[in-house]
Nucleic acid binder design. Structure first.
Lengths: 342, 342
DNA sequence: AAAACCAACGCAAACGTTTGCGTTCACGGG
DNA sequence: CCCGTGAACGCAAACGTTTGCGTTGGTTTT
């Protein structure tokens, strides 16, 4: 049970602990033969440096904390994978937890992370986080990087996609397949990504104002049941939309569900485009058009920025990285032309 | 940047570090007034005990490691949530990572966990893990609990559902809706959960042998494309099955996909039942019948067992906890009677 | 042969916290 | 007045590791 320490090796070989320590890292100060004996013994005894001792010495844990809204969203599970990959390569450990979209839980998560002594924090905001004090406190205290669900009220590094042009492209696509009354099924009113996508939505509508006769925005939540109800009340109106751009795939699927219950045909009476291109998008029927992000790469990059900042120390300015997206067109928004596979 | 330590408080109050330490835990050895002053100062300075120092002292990290095949499977994401809840309540930190169903990665994960000095390990095996040496090594070294994807070749505590009777119930259900040629779309041949479900499958077939004219088992993998190909080659045969019980929802969805491509109607020509009842089961169309497990509770229980074992020390015998499942019948296996909602 | 040098190693402090065992002081009892 | 007592606190070691600065020998230089 008791782990083998440097002292054990030292005692066994009749040398001092410092010699063992140096020998283990192949210091030139130590004799060739001693180095060999130490390393062999260490291997034989399965020696592992005690992390706590190292942390104590360096005042660093080589651990980063990750807080995401929900690992059940494939987007975040995948991003986390990128985070883990990069972290491992740089010799860091990852401790992850979920806010479950609840602001209070996010605050607790941050608190836990601080207590755990992480060297840095990677966070994607819960949908209802408005009060940012728990993060503001960290400024100047600990390196922080935000990704996807970011906020520009904080001066942290940020990684996200070009939401404006992504939304613009998606909405323009809806126009091109013939939609005339287009709705944006948005997230909470104060979320940056939701608002940026709204801006793209508005730009596309403006650009095609001769074709688009109606454009509206409906705010809802990221969970599917709520999204479905919002979509339903919207679709009940006389002048209901014939095209929906949704802030996420979950929300889009909520809208599809609503349409199905009301007997509205997709894509003919209602075309839908989602966001994130989760695997489920190609599984449901009709398959869902969606905007794809380089999720894995974004997780990697966020981690790279974070660790760079950790290792750079004080002199590090916040950095912003934006990625390009790609619209994947599927059955939910394919009209007129002959249907093809996917 | 530099965190405030006990020494800082001591210096500030002109007392010794030991006094501060004792005062912080309200030791009766310390004067009332001193305790008050220390605690007030600690709060004001936002003092947090240094985890590394504590770990070094107690030879414990109050951290548990979790290794799951894939957080993209909703089942594991949800189980992790149960783990986090329980761990937080007991004052433990969780570090999670994914094997991505790859045995080598699982070995690396275990290695990382050991290096991180976790107090215990919670693991659900990758589908291709046959060589269990990396876990066998841990016996007697560190508390380990396995869940869902367990193995009885190791003497660790285990948490899982009654796979035999769950499978029995699912297959019997298929028989009752009229299936006569039933197939079990299994996982890899040496996986315990897959084999237990096979046993239930066989028992149900035996029980209804007067009705079931054909029963077969096809082994495949947990990823959907592979599962789809396996299903396709099975469905191409002249005497193709009219009922499929799949080892997981992903595999079941692969089978649905295969059926769709081949123009086989679900549920009329082919009824399907999956396992896990992931959210996607009710989203796809037709909606998928599936066996539901108490996932959250299983995550919680696994963690409880693990922490109990950690805190009990040597004298702890492995424990086995099994949970009951519930078959959720949906459109993919509903025949004959009038269709109802869900 | 003395001085200088180098290779090879040991000593001890430091990181932050806890804890067993002092030490100090005031006070009460005899 | 002296001793015992107990309250309130300090000292120092310990956990495992690293690292600056010794301290040994022995070998080379002049």
């Amino acid at each position: 049970m008791a782990a083998v320490t440097i002292k054990d090796i030292a005692r066994l070989l009749n040398v001092s602990a410092s010699t063992v320590s140096r020998a283990l890292k192949g210091s030139p100060e130590i004799g060739r033969e001693t180095v060999a004996r130490v390393q062999e013994t260490a291997r034989r005894l399965n020696y592992r440096p005690n992390k706590a001792a190292l942390s104590l010495l360096n005042a660093r844990t080589r651990t980063i904390g990750v807080i995401v809204p929900n690992l059940g969203y494939h987007f975040f599970a995948r991003a986390l994978q990128g985070v883990e990959d990069e972290a491992r390569e740089r010799g860091y450990t990852v401790i992850a937890c979920q806010s479950l979209e609840a602001a209070e839980k996010e605050v607790r998560n941050v608190e836990d992370m601080r207590r755990s002594g992480v060297d840095g924090l990677l966070i994607s905001l819960a949908q209802h986080t408005r009060d940012l004090r728990h993060l503001k406190e960290l400024q100047g205290q600990m390196p922080v990087v935000m990704f996807d669900r970011v906020s520009d009220a904080l001066s942290f590094s940020r990684v996200f996609v070009n939401n404006v042009s992504a939304a613009f492209g998606a909405v323009e696509h809806l126009v091109k397949v013939g939609c005339r009354r287009i709705a944006y099924l948005a997230g909470p009113a104060d979320m940056m990504i939701s608002n940026h996508r709204m801006e793209g939505f508005r730009m596309a509508v403006a650009r095609h104002r001769r074709k688009v006769t109606d454009a509206r925005v409906v705010h809802t939540e990221f969970d599917q049941p709520t999204a479905m109800r919002s979509a339903m009340s919207m679709l009940r109106r006389k002048d209901r939309p014939d095209g929906i751009f949704a802030v996420s795939d979950r929300v889009a699927i909520g809208a599809m569900e609503a349409a199905r219950k009301m007997g509205i045909a997709i894509p003919d009476e209602l075309a839908i485009v989602g966001f994130n291109d989760e695997p489920i998008a190609s599984l449901i029927s009709p398959s869902l058009s969606s905007v794809r992000q380089p999720t894995l790469e974004m997780g990697r990059m966020s981690t790279r920025l974070l660790i760079d900042q950790i290792e750079a120390g004080e002199g590090f300015r916040p950095v912003i990285r934006t990625y390009m997206t790609r619209l994947i067109v599927r059955a939910s928004s394919r009209r007129g032309s002959k249907p093809s596979k996917t």
